[in-house]
């Protein structure tokens, strides 16, 4: 229905961060836009589940969407696959309006929250369902995956364990051969082992079929291993989005004598701050190096970085109090 738009350079993808690394990896070379949102919002009654979301996610990446429960992750993903229609703004996925027609649906795979499957249908019937409903269905891939997972094709999906069911849902998503695979908290209900197996399978498929992946979780740990691009969503707003390496390189933990963050040089943005009587600890974002010798500069891990953004959400009372 809607023809693909010409590729958009993904330099715009890092809208919240200036690009820090000149080197563009081979993987990033075929950069197009996977998902583009402009002022996107979804309202339920009076409550905005997602508001003013502007995003430009590059294709060919594994993108982690992280945020606390109720931040709007599911809403954003549901908007991306066309499960929901936006109240405000617009969203385009792989150049098309989500769920606008069979072609668009074929391009985007979705593993919904709680990985729903038909309890009364067997594993084999799920594969048949996929084959019947998707013109691009890769039956060999699906069968091979089911076999490797050790799933009995004659078993009803309702009798599978949570991990197996998630794997079945993932198999349906992958064998559809989409260009973008969207997963909404796929591992939330799984035990650590099943979690790892699931994410491993996802990564293998992403590499093998050069899939773009958008994966949400409220746990950074799940995403740390898998994602090379991160979006932090807090209280229905995008707090930060960017390449994981870029994000890590641009954020620093500064520890030093107590100091008012307002006195920092221009270009150093404070993400979070905590103070004791004598000491200040800041997490700042900056393009350039930190020259001030008063600071001890430390690395920020991905988890700390995400937590810093979550903690600094605008409606949360500031942690410090200058006494």
């Amino acid at each position: 229905m809607t023809a693909d738009r010409p590729a958009i350079s993904c330099s715009a993808g890092v809208r919240f961060l200036p690009r820090l690394k000149a080197g563009v990896s081979a993987r990033r070379a075929r950069c197009t836009t996977a998902l583009q949102a402009e002022g996107l919002g979804k309202r339920y009654g009076k409550r905005w589940a997602l508001s003013d979301c502007t995003l430009d996610l590059p294709a060919g990446r594994v993108i982690g969407l992280v945020g606390p429960n109720g931040a709007g992750k599911t809403t954003l993903l549901n908007l991306a696959v066309g499960q929901l229609t936006p109240t405000a703004g617009g969203i385009r996925v792989l150049g098309g309006r989500p769920a606008s027609g069979p072609e668009q649906l074929a391009k985007v795979g979705y593993v919904a929250q709680d990985t729903p499957t038909y309890a009364g249908l067997t594993v084999a019937e799920h594969l048949k369902l996929g084959a019947r409903l998707n013109p691009g269905w890769d039956d060999a891939l699906a069968r091979d995956r089911i076999e490797r997972l050790g799933l009995d094709p004659a078993r009803k999906a309702g009798k599978l364990s949570g991990g197996q069911r998630a794997q079945l849902a993932l198999t349906l998503g992958i064998a559809k051969r989409p260009r973008l695979l969207v997963l909404d908290e796929p591992v939330a209900a799984l035990d650590p082992l099943a979690r790892r197996e699931f994410l491993q399978g996802l990564m293998e498929a992403a590499v093998e079929h050069s899939l773009s992946v958008v994966l949400s979780s409220h746990l950074v740990m799940d995403l740390e291993r898998t994602c090379d691009y991160l979006v932090v969503l807090v209280e229905s707003r995008v707090r930060v989005a960017g390449d994981v390496d870029d994000l890590l390189a641009a954020h620093h933990r500064l520890t030093g004598p107590r100091r008012d963050p307002a006195t920092l040089p221009a270009g150093q943005e404070v993400v979070s701050e905590s103070h004791t009587d004598r000491q200040s600890t800041l997490i700042v974002r900056t393009d350039g190096p930190i020259h001030d010798p008063a600071w001890t500069v430390g690395q920020v891990g991905l988890e700390d970085l995400v937590l810093a953004y979550m903690a600094s959400s605008p409606s949360r009372p500031s942690l410090e109090a200058i006494r």
């Binding site: 696959v81 499960q83 769920a99 027609g101 069979p102 072609e103 649906l105 074929a106 985007v108 795979g109 979705y110 919904a112 929250q113 709680d114 729903p116 499957t117 038909y118 309890a119 369902l129 996929g130 409903l133 998707n134 013109p135 691009g136 849902a169 349906l172 998503g173 559809k176």
Partner: peptide, 15 residues
């Protein structure tokens, strides 16, 4: 109720 509409609606078939 079972959430399976989200599985069905994300095959290549419009709702």
């Amino acid at each position: 109720e079972a959430g399976t509409h989200r599985l069905a609606w994300n095959q290549s078939v419009t709702r």
